[in-house]
Computed example of a mutant assay.
Amino acid sequence: MSEGNEVASAIPEGGLDGTGSVLVAGASKDVLRGVPMGLLDRAASDGDGVVVVTTGVDPRTLVDRVERRVSGVAREDVAVVDARPQGEAVRANPRPLHWRVRSPMDLTGTSRAVHECLSTLFDRGVSTRHVLFDSLSRLVLGGDVETVARFTHQLLVLGDAPDALGIYPVYTNTTDDPVLAQLAHLFGGRVDVRRRGDVRELRCRGIAGTPHEWTVVASTTPDRIGDVRVR
């Protein structure tokens, strides 16, 4: 576990074992900041790999965050699916762990790329491979919820393996309650995050050993690269 992981105060050691997937819900990116990465750090063990899918965050920023904040995962075992809006779908470069698709709504291309990255990590001897999606909210805004739900279910099936965890944030300020409920039933667990004054609180569902009420967690230091704050 990395130093300063605020999630550790709300989720006990081994609490995520067998959960399979977690929906992380909060009003905004700022409210959720650090929590998805903290969950990944809580779940990952030495020698694990990660597939990160981005619809908006710079891929290198995500890889840097995994390297800095997730213990046991080496940089060379982090695969990237870059689904930011960007013209025609091509490989971003010759590296087999870096794929690019033409837009967040290219769901078929994203699913294929995630499958390819998971398979490549497995072929390299990485048996436990987690999936971290930067946010489902962009997909919900760009398409109908039934399509997004089917796509999310497909990714959860692709990433389903012993000890692996899929982490999927969603912003409640752009996602209404019926849509959130339709997505939530796909996941093994759920972490709600809210801010009250200067502190944040977490409430967990479907995660072993966690209280059902809101739990205060320490504030997270914003992610930084050098002296530049990144979002």
Rank of each mutant, 00 (worst) to 15 (best):
L97R: 07
S119D: 11
S111N: 05
D77A: 12
T120R: 13
D123N: 13
D123R: 13
V126S: 08
D123E: 15
R84E: 02
D82A: 11
E88S: 10
R95I: 07
P94C: 03
S103I: 05
R95F: 09
A92G: 00
T110R: 03
L107W: 05
P94A: 02
M105W: 14
E88V: 15
A83Q: 07
D77I: 08
F122D: 04
P94S: 07
A79S: 08
N93V: 12
L132S: 07
L118H: 10
L132A: 00
A89D: 01
R84G: 10
H130S: 05
V126T: 15
T120E: 14
Q86E: 05
Q86P: 06
L107K: 06
C117P: 04
R102F: 04
D77L: 08
S103H: 10
L107F: 10
R129T: 15
H98C: 02
D123Y: 14
D123K: 09
V80I: 11
H130P: 01
P104R: 05
M105F: 15
V81K: 03
E116Q: 12
P96Y: 03
S127H: 11
D82H: 09
P104I: 04
R102H: 09
N93W: 06
M105E: 14
R102S: 15
P94G: 08
P104L: 06
S127F: 10
D77E: 13
V80K: 04
V81F: 04
E116M: 01
V80D: 01
T108L: 15
G109V: 02
S119I: 09
V114D: 01
S119R: 10
V101A: 02
G109E: 02
S119F: 14
F122H: 04
V101W: 01
A83W: 00
S111G: 09
S127E: 14
V81I: 15
D82P: 06
R102N: 09
E88L: 10
D106S: 12
H98L: 07
